[in-house]
């Protein structure tokens, strides 16, 4: 398993993205796989920093674990923000007119399009989001 722990500030999102992209590159994954993993990690980390830490997470962390399993890559993202399950919110509707849309919710919506499994749990005082991405066939 590969692991990265960064402070909960916005400029660290790119560090997290590069960590995942480099692993995918080293493993010989194609551009699409890398993009879908990168965008997913970006959206989750940005949500944690903006909403969980309210842009005040310099003394808190985001931990990313990557397990390269035979069929899937499993990403586990842990944060110390107040308990929140991002999977309980309704998905935004892409067909809804702009004026009727609520702002937000698109990040996790994109993650749902790109990942085959998403699960949330709260353990040891941390939010824990698990994403699974199937390997290209």
């Amino acid at each position: 398993m590969h692991k990265l722990r960064v402070p909960g500030v916005i400029d660290q999102v790119r560090v997290a993205c590069d960590f995942v992209k480099n692993l995918a590159h080293q493993a010989g994954m194609d551009d699409r796989f890398m993009f879908e993993c990168e965008l997913s990690i970006d959206e989750i980390c940005t949500n944690i920093i903006e909403h969980g830490y309210q842009h005040n997470g310099a003394d808190k962390s985001i931990e990313i674990r990557v397990e390269m399993l035979p069929q899937v890559w499993r990403f586990t993202i842990l944060d110390e923000a107040p308990r929140f399950n991002p999977l309980i919110t309704d998905d935004p509707d892409p067909s809804q007119p702009l004026d009727e849309r609520e702002q937000g919710g698109w990040g996790i919506y994109f993650v749902k399009q790109y990942m085959q499994r998403i699960a949330y749990r709260y353990e040891n005082g941390r939010n824990c989001l698990v994403l699974e991405k199937a390997l290209p066939t």
Binding site: F35, E38, L39, D42, E43, T46, L98, Q103, G104, W106, G107, F110
Partner: peptide, 11 residues
Amino acid sequence: YMSSAGLRELV
């Protein structure tokens, strides 16, 4: 590359 944060600014 553009994430949902970029789309939010476009909107």
